[in-house]
Design a protein around this nucleic acid. Structure first.
Length: 415
RNA sequence: GUGGCCGUAGCUCAAUGGUAGAGCUCCAGAUUGUGGUUCUGGUUGUUGCGGGUUCGAGUCCCGUCGGUCACCCCA
């Protein structure tokens, strides 16, 4: 049996690496006062149709269930979050700072940094319209990446402002209904040929030169970005951000700030992206709930690639993996007649909270030490001729000493 | 969705159209109470799958599935 395309098995080594990423995500989000939530993996396809156009529906992992409901595996969290918050926003004090880190699905051909099932951290602030919320969210994104040992030489946040573009377009006679089409031309500016961009912009009565001039000198219409930048500078995080108005992002629901995070090397796809979606809750609740909101998503696949590429990040991950090995203590049973005594010792050590492993079936002492090595244990305890004393051995230094059972028990917990 | 390249042992890869192999891993032994080295031995394959050409196909052709890269798109 083959794995379905774009899906992954997580053998223990891979699972440990995944758990490392999850633990840093949760740790840093917690430090920022974000609380974890979750929603269903499966949603009605209408949820995704409601908030954006047909393009997105083409990438959905969707099917008709046995009750003939047209459903989709969640491709992102924002619509679910908007639905949840719109339904019970009165239960929570504003602003809400929520995060989650579940699996998402999209039906696309896989390649580097893109799978059909992936983990994504989602952090959102709801009910706060001020630029302080924008800065707080960006600071969180930065500190999460710093939490992996990545620095200003490794990644950068590129900030842009859709409001600035909306004003720019409005001033040149582009109606609100055509704003998204205009933005998609801006989005493709770097990839499309000059002639092609020029032609598309002429449909909006603009020239490439006008648009480029705005991109290189956006000051007048992007004052909000400036206050966000000031906030981040005060936190000492100024070197992680730069303004780049070519970022507009594809999703229809973004309103003000939008941003993407890239590796400085330019090797990977975007590490994270997000922005403001001040009108989405209103749309989701049919006008009942009006609440400003913003958030970002950060996938595990690209992040893991970048950690692989950066030495410091690699070391930090290895340190974590080392501290989370299978066992701390390996009990070596050198004399099979003492198995009952050894089991009792194993049990006592485990009850004190230590990670303990041992050979389940009779095995040569050499084999047991080999197994001890492989388990990652720092210490071995030999139960044998010395009984009722034990041989306590530090595996790295090969130093041994004789101890009573109670002395061994008193050595744990190890940390 | 479109195109290029690639699918051989658990992994990394060999094999002019002519008997499917090596290294690593794993298991066992050397070593009946001491581990990362070393040495010896052993297990593992419908060569992704299905057709075709040929006396003969891992090798050539077609299809298909999967991987990978680029484009497309991006939550």
């Amino acid at each position: 049996m083959q794995l379905l395309p774009g899906f992954r098995d997580f053998y223990p080594e891979e699972c440990a690496r995944r758990n490392y990423i999850l633990s840093v995500w949760r740790d840093v989000a917690g430090r920022y006062g974000f609380v974890e939530y979750d929603g269903p993996v499966l949603e009605s396809i209408e949820l995704y149709r409601k908030k954006s156009g047909g393009e997105l529906v083409g990438q959905l992992f969707d099917f008709v269930d046995k009750g003939e409901r047209h459903v989709a595996m969640r491709p992102e969290m924002t619509p679910t979050l908007a639905r949840m918050v719109a339904a019970r926003e009165r239960d929570y004090k504003k602003p809400l700072k929520w995060f989650c880190a579940p699996s998402f699905f999209r039906y696309e051909k896989q390649q580097r940094g893109r799978l059909r099932e992936f983990l994504q951290l989602n952090c959102d602030i709801l009910g706060e319209a001020s630029a302080g919320a924008d800065a707080e969210l960006l600071a969180l994104a930065i500190d999460i990446l710093r939490g992996f040992g990545l620095g200003p030489a490794d990644f950068v946040l590129r900030l842009s402002d859709r409001d600035a573009w909306a004003e720019f377009a409005k001033a040149r006679g582009v109606g609100e209904d055509r704003l998204l089409d205009f933005l998609s031309v801006v989005d493709k500016l770097e990839r499309a040929s000059e002639a092609e961009s020029e032609k598309r912009l002429s449909d909006f009565g603009m020239t490439l030169q006008q648009v480029r001039a705005f991109i290189s000198n956006p000051t007048a219409e992007a004052t909000k970005l400036n206050s966000i930048l000031e906030d981040l500078k005060a936190r000492g995080l100024g070197e992680y951000v730069e303004v780049d108005l070519t970022i507009v992002r594809g999703l229809a629901y973004y309103t003000g700030l939008v941003f993407e995070v890239f590796d400085r090397g330019g090797k990977e796809r975007a590490l994270a992206g997000g922005g403001r979606y001040d009108r989405l809750l209103e749309v989701m609740s049919d006008g009942k709930v009006k609440m400003p909101a913003l958030g970002f998503g950060m996938g595990d696949v690209v992040l893991a690639n970048l950690i692989d590429d950066v030495e410091v990040a690699n070391q930090r991950r290895n340190a974590w993996l080392g501290a989370n090995r299978a066992a701390e203590i390996f009990v070596v049973l050198a004399k099979e007649e003492l198995r009952s005594e050894a089991l009792r010792l194993v049990q006592r050590l485990r009850e004190k909270g230590s990670r303990v492993d041992f050979a389940l079936a009779p095995a040569k002492v050499g084999k047991q030490f080999q197994a001890a090595e492989q388990s990652g244990a720092q210490f071995a305890v030999v139960v044998g001729d010395e009984w009722p004393q034990l041989k306590w051995k530090e595996l790295a230094t090969r130093q041994e000493r004789l101890l009573d059972v109670d002395e061994v028990i008193s050595l744990v917990p190890m940390k």
